[in-house]
């Protein structure tokens, strides 16, 4: 049980990073982007690409595999993932926005997701890959559980990032403009809030968090082209559980989804792992569609 919780916390952090981006895009741009999970995969592979293209070693930092090389690669991957998010928006979503009903936009995002996932498949192959082949030793917590140092790092970094994002939205002028645009786009335009700026910032945050999440997945688990496909339901379950537009809710949602999954797998055969977030999602939609943490449909906190 303790072991399940410990594993759930690092998986939860990875889900939360994806869910925070999804919830912002849903809340502010009012767009349910099914390609978002593929941005995670893209980010993970871009870091791998940077390492192999530059010949850098992932390196290590104390007990952690997130060494200088991989940190640098992750930063580049974040930029490349933001670029992908912006290009997809410019080429596809932006052309449709305001012209078609929003569910057609959702449909287009499925098309984009297919393209991104299988382009990765085409470029990097379908087998699992790792940033580094170095062996790491687990930390033991008494006799109860053993955790990898990287899992702890992922958990802590995610909390810090979420705190930073919350502070940005809550206190900065740009964050205020984003919250305003989330509630009422027309009124925020009347107040001089530029949609293009909001669009740019939202995709930048979403893309950067997605890349970080993808790299963390690669560090703690492995890279495969279907990482995003596997994480899609957990991410959406977390975002909806947390209340759309609610960043702190998405963080909590990520941990809840992962913990439920980890604990449930003590009884349920692991083959059904992917169905667990789906059941959580259906329960939330059935019992409390606004999420546990009072999401505002079309709002950002």
């Amino acid at each position: 049980m303790i072991q399940a919780i410990a594993d759930g916390l690092s998986t939860g952090a990875i889900i939360a990073l994806g869910a925070m981006g999804v919830t912002l895009v849903m809340g502010i741009l009012r767009f349910t982007n099914f390609a978002h999970a593929e941005y995670l995969t893209w980010g993970g592979y871009m870091a791998l690409f940077v390492l192999s293209a530059t010949g850098l070693e992932a390196g290590s930092l104390g007990p952690f595999s997130l060494g200088p090389g991989l940190i640098l690669a992750m930063l580049v991957a974040m930029v490349l993932t933001v670029a992908l998010a912006l290009i997809a928006d410019r080429l596809v979503f932006h052309r449709l926005r305001g012209k078609v009903n929003h569910i057609t936009l959702v449909f287009a995002s499925f098309g984009v997701a297919l393209i991104v996932r299988y382009v990765i498949h085409l470029l990097f192959g379908g087998s699992a890959q790792y940033y580094s082949n170095d062996l790491r030793f687990a930390w033991r917590i008494g006799d109860l559980a053993s955790v990898m140092p990287d899992q702890v790092l992922v958990f802590v970094v995610t909390l810090v990032v979420a705190g930073g994002l919350y502070t940005f939205l809550r206190y900065s002028a740009l964050g205020l403009a984003m919250r305003a645009a989330a509630e009422n786009p027309a009124l925020s335009a009347i107040n001089g809030v530029r949609f293009r700026t909001i669009l740019l910032v939202t995709w930048t945050i979403g893309g950067a968090l997605a890349a970080m999440s993808g790299v963390f997945y690669g560090v703690t688990v492995q890279l495969r082209p279907d990482v995003g496909f596997q994480l899609l339901l957990p991410i959406f379950a977390a975002a909806i559980l947390g209340g759309i537009g609610n960043v702190v809710g998405a963080l909590a949602g990520g941990f809840i989804v992962a913990l439920v999954e980890a604990v449930a797998l003590l009884w349920i055969p692991s083959g059904y792992k992917l169905a667990i977030p789906f059941i959580v999602l259906l329960l939330v939609l059935w019992l409390r569609p606004t999420g546990l943490f009072r999401g505002t449909s079309g709002g950002a906190k």
Binding site: L176, R179, A182, E183, N184, A186, L187, S188, T296
Partner: peptide, 8 residues
């Protein structure tokens, strides 16, 4: 209508 931001 909706001339203020109710969530702010």
């Amino acid at each position: 209508t909706s001339n203020i931001f109710g969530t702010l």
